[in-house]
Design a protein around this nucleic acid. Sequence first.
DNA 1: GCGACAG
DNA 2: ATCTTGTCGC
Length: 232
Amino acid sequence: MSHLRWGTCGEEILAGTMARGEAEAFLRSVAQRVREVPLPFVPSLLVGADVAYGERQAVAAVVVWDLREGKVVWEETREGPVAAEYRPGLFFLREAPLVLPLLSRVPLDGWVALLHGHGMAHPLGAGLASVVGVLLGRPTVGCAGSLLCGRGGEPGEEKGSWSPVWWQGKRVGAFLRTRAGVKPLVVSVGHGLTLEEAVGLVHAASVYRFPEPLRLADALARKSLRAAAGGV
DNA sequence: GCGACAG
DNA sequence: ATCTTGTCGC
């Protein structure tokens, strides 16, 4: 498991074959490869990816959001079997199998992906967003509704206000007020950009609590799941 | 040993 | 995450 590229270890992830020990070792490897560095380009698109689950089948949705126009310019869904049960800390085993194939097929460039979960703000230093970012070699950001580890101060009440989240002496994420009057979102670097850039992008695309690309991907995934499973 | 725990 | 309509509140 030395080479971390989509295609080499992707099969294992897709098969949901990884045992807890293997999965943790995998996450540590991903954590070593995570880079928190400035973006090498000015992003014009944000890609939101999310998955809706049925009993055995699940549907992933990807929505490409044009930051300048403030609208969806492309979207796609993919149905597949539920790869694994949910276990805190190993969420990627459940979500990545369906999200990776979809993201690798986005026909546009210059984007940063938003994942529903954590990036570096993870006990092992790499959550779903980091796994996706490192395997695809693309910048990713983790957006979660609550902490998995670490702690941080309450940000100001106005939209855009944020405060750092700390874990074991390191700054691993931020509490971002994406909308006045709502519980702050936990934003963390998945891979390939700085926390300041991640926070700025999420803030720029937020109207409600979760940024538009993610909110729309969530809605599309559910709608597609009902059409696929409920239509029978 | 006990509690906490992304979605 | 999911089971689920209307409803209370800013």
